[in-house]
Computed example of a mutant assay.
Amino acid sequence: MKLFTIDNEGKFVQFKEREFKENNKEIDLEILLENNPEYFFENNKILIIGRQVTTNLNTFIDLLGIDELGNTAVIELKRDKTPRETLAQLIEYASFIDNLDYEQLNDIFQNYSGEEVGLEEYHQQYYENGASQNISWNKNSKLVIVAQDISKEIKQTSLYLRKKGIDVYCVEFKYFVNNSNIKMISSDFVVGDEEFIRQKVKSETQLPKTTQDKFIKTLNENGKFVFNRLFDFVNKENLLLRWGSKGFSLNLPFENGFVGLCFGYPPTSVFKQSIYTGFEEITKKVNNPEKVIFEFRTELKKQKNFEKARTNLKWIITKKSETEINNFLETIKKLVERIKSEGLKK
């Protein structure tokens, strides 16, 4: 296949196919796929929850993903031709992933993303699922090979495994560069395309954490108004902000730990520009959590700007309102006093 761009004079400038490995490392392919999974998988979204995930055999999974139904996707990347042992590697990784429950997947996701929000909540927002949709976590696994050249041996063996009921997919990509050093990638399923389209521990690599300054720059004027007031409140009340890759958690520090009170997100997050409650944190760490959460929830519902978000509440920030931010900060202040009086679980 020949690809061209058109210059200012209306002339064709050819893109020439290149070996990806010539000027790129395997980590470059990891980052490309990590940031653009839907383009490699025929517009099917895959939520990446881990990169370089360590197995019990001290080997490393290039990328670990979750599809819309909660099934895992174990992804092995090769920047050139696939060696014979690629499938053996992938099956070994799958044997490890197959034994993971939701809590372990959640640990991998939180370690990788740097976010303290749970995988279930993030997954719902990412796929825009309704609260009523039932997710079966890790019921099945997809085994995915992405390479510039899928060898005929790998294709043949993958097709055999598919006939035996193992979900194996092979994605082949092509890498092009023109004289202006503009780069282009195309991708095609060579094994398992129709099936893929029809179906709906610790990560060694973390996404970089954001900072308060970077976070504020991503906000619109409504967000800056609300979050700057919140950050001033945090400093005044000696509370703790813990930053993730996109947003933050607001925490009440104790001598022997901390309790998450709520989470803040920018417009670029799947949660949109918002504040979410942290009822799970209170349940895990605070004495008499039912009473504490009931009071917290009741106060927020009175404020009208909070709405239901599965088991939590969320405030999508779309306007500047002194009343709304003042009421929210007053509610957080009451929550802090109540948690201090109840104390932490031992």
Score class of each variant (00 low, 15 high):
Val226Phe: 12
Asp80Glu: 09
Pro37Thr: 10
Glu194Ala: 07
Glu195Thr: 05
Leu159Trp: 05
Asp213His: 10
Val226Asn: 07
Lys304Pro: 05
Ile197Ser: 12
Gln148Ser: 14
Gln206Ser: 15
Thr268Phe: 04
Leu159Val: 05
Lys142Gln: 04
Val74Glu: 00
Lys320Gln: 06
Ser341Cys: 14
Asn129Lys: 15
Thr5Val: 12
Phe196Leu: 01
Lys291Asp: 15
Leu344Asn: 03
Glu255Tyr: 10
Asn8Pro: 03
Tyr169Leu: 02
Gln104Trp: 07
Gln206Leu: 11
Ser180Trp: 08
Thr331Ser: 15
Ser158Trp: 00
Lys139Gly: 00
Cys170Ile: 02
Ala309Pro: 03
Lys2Gly: 11
Asn71Leu: 00
Pro253Lys: 08
Phe258Leu: 15
Ala94Leu: 02
Glu103Gly: 01
Asp98His: 03
Lys183Cys: 06
Val226Glu: 04
Ile75Asp: 02
Lys200His: 08
Ala309Gly: 05
Asn287Gln: 12
Tyr276Arg: 13
Glu68Trp: 02
Pro83Asn: 09
Gln124Asn: 11
Ile293Asn: 08
Glu280Ala: 14
Pro289Asn: 06
Lys333Val: 14
Gly10Pro: 13
Val336His: 13
Thr59Pro: 00
Gly264Ser: 06
Thr205Leu: 12
Tyr265Leu: 04
Phe271Cys: 01
Glu128Arg: 14
Asn43Ile: 04
Tyr160Glu: 11
Pro267Arg: 01
Ser274Leu: 03
Lys200Trp: 03
Leu63Asn: 08
Phe254Glu: 02
Glu194Ile: 07
Asn44Lys: 14
Asp188Val: 12
Val336Lys: 15
Glu342Gln: 13
Val146Trp: 09
Asp232Pro: 06
Asn138Thr: 02
Ser187Met: 10
Glu330Ser: 15
Thr298Met: 14
Phe96Gln: 01
Val146His: 11
Gln124Cys: 07
Glu337Gln: 13
